[in-house]
């Protein structure tokens, strides 16, 4: 099992300024999953409960001279403390900044070392940076590489997650959604989310004394869409949503407001927009973040970032 690569400058910026802060907010410990083509940061794909998140990069976005080999079809997975990883990267950056030019590259590799005061070698992810006067090596402790079964399970969980909801709606203003979610948290924790093929996103929190909800209408729809029934403008948001679900033109699911608030932390990765969809049979709420190629409005296909929020109680309607 071998892994060795140089971080690209883009890769360093992406990780340092955008993705590591977001990934850290999603959960302190994450799985790093490396394949011959991709590098990924994963949360909760093995445990199966809690919110799942996947940040996947084409290997060339983050690395050059990417060398990987393993018994599991060239795939390696391990758990790491995101904060430690970020700290190592930052200090590697400081050393790099002292170099006379941009040639001082940061190399990372998987190693086994004998930790101080121990007789058993332990695995590390090592950052090697050569500055002007010094070269610095940082060892970030990681878990033992995942055994073949777990790697296989990660791979199949990832493939299962590829199933996209039939209908996705685009939310442009994540800050607005975040402020709404913060305020709804005062009401309760169980959130009913409904998404219709007309491009409506409906959020509702309900207790015995009060129901508070919010509806965003005429959002951009990806996938299956339908025209809203005529004169539905006079109906109330809950009635409209209920009718859409009854006609099979909408789905609803109950999720934890805490999970949704957490997923919104992904905005730290500065996505250009976000899509929300409910998986078939209301299996989960999927949030897909989209990134544009810098300076364009074209989707950057080399980065993909999404969350799957577990459904607490498959509801039939709000």
């Amino acid at each position: 099992m071998k892994f060795k690569a140089f971080l690209t400058q883009d890769g360093v910026n992406l990780l340092d300024k955008r993705f590591l802060p977001a990934v850290d907010k999603l959960g302190r410990i994450c799985h790093v999953y490396l394949t011959p083509d991709h590098a990924m940061f994963l949360h909760n794909l093995l445990s199966g409960d809690g919110m799942q998140s996947v940040a996947q990069f084409n290997k060339d976005v983050l690395f050059r001279d990417y060398r990987i080999s393993s018994q599991n079809a060239g795939r390696i997975g391990f758990a790491v403390d995101v904060a430690l990883l970020h700290r190592a990267l930052r200090s590697a950056l400081t050393i790099q900044a002292q170099a006379p030019d941009d040639t001082a590259a940061i190399q990372i590799k998987l190693v086994k070392k004998l930790p101080a005061g121990s007789r058993d070698p332990a695995p590390f992810l090592t950052f090697e940076t050569k500055g002007r006067v010094s070269a610095v090596v940082q060892d970030v402790p990681i878990s033992k590489p995942l055994p073949r079964d777990d790697v296989q399970q990660l791979q199949s969980a990832l493939e299962a997650a590829q199933d996209l909801p039939q209908t996705l709606v685009q939310v442009q203003d994540l800050a607005q959604l975040q402020s709404l979610v913060d305020r709804l948290r005062n009401v309760g924790d169980l959130l009913t989310v409904a998404i219709t093929q007309y491009g409506d996103l409906h959020l509702q929190v309900s207790t015995s004394l009060i129901t508070v909800g919010s509806e965003f209408r005429r959002l951009r729809v990806l996938g299956v869409r339908a025209d809203p029934p005529a004169s539905d403008g006079i109906l109330s948001a809950p009635t409209r949503t209920e009718m859409a679900i009854r006609k099979g033109e909408g789905l609803s699911a109950q999720v934890s407001l805490k999970h949704l608030a957490k997923s919104l932390q992904c905005h730290l990765a500065k996505p250009d927009c976000a899509f929300y969809g409910i998986a078939p049979q209301g299996a989960c709420l999927t949030v897909i973040f989209q990134f544009f190629v810098p300076g364009t409005r074209l989707t950057d296909k080399s980065i993909s970032f999404y969350c799957r929020l577990p459904v607490l109680d498959p509801g039939s309607g709000p």
Binding site: L180, L209, I210, G213, S214, E215, F216, R217, A237
Partner: peptide, 16 residues
Amino acid sequence: LKTVDSPDACIYAEIR
């Protein structure tokens, strides 16, 4: 209660 100033986004509440 509901907000009425935007046709495309609203917040509403029902208090018992």
